[in-house]
């Protein structure tokens, strides 16, 4: 039904614009995107899984899980589950300082 209604039509759900037909298919790109997001989310004890190529499911260690349509939603729901802001301007800053 989501596919019919265009639920996955957020700009972040599109495949790389301009990529040729021989490039990775959309489903594989989506799984890669979720895997990359998990590199951010798993250290925070959250997890993101693809749901039928149309949505994502974001889960917390307390058993809460929520279906989200796109990445704008993923970060919003993740912030709610964590109870704090996820700020890309400060994210990974500590890692960098430790490596310096």
């Amino acid at each position: 039904m989501c596919g019919l209604l265009g639920g996955g039509n957020h700009w972040s759900n599109t495949t790389a614009p301009g990529a040729g037909a021989g490039s990775q298919n959309a489903r594989r790109q989506r799984l890669l995107q979720a895997a990359l997001a998990n590199r951010i989310l798993i250290p925070l004890r959250l997890r993101l899984d693809d749901f039928h190529g149309q949505s994502f499911v974001l889960s917390s260690p307390t058993g809460a899980s929520e279906m989200v349509g796109d990445f704008a939603q993923v970060w919003k729901v993740a912030e709610r589950m964590l109870g704090r802001a996820l700020d890309p301007l400060t994210l990974f800053q500590v890692d960098e300082e430790e490596h310096a």
């Binding site: 972040s12 790389a16 614009p17 990445f71 970060w75 802001a85 996820l86 700020d87």
Partner: peptide
């Protein structure tokens, strides 16, 4: 990398 860029940009717009 399109995937990394979209993750970063959606997070940036969500917060700022």
């Amino acid at each position: 990398d399109w995937q990394v860029f979209t993750l970063w940009f959606t997070m940036l717009l969500n917060r700022h």
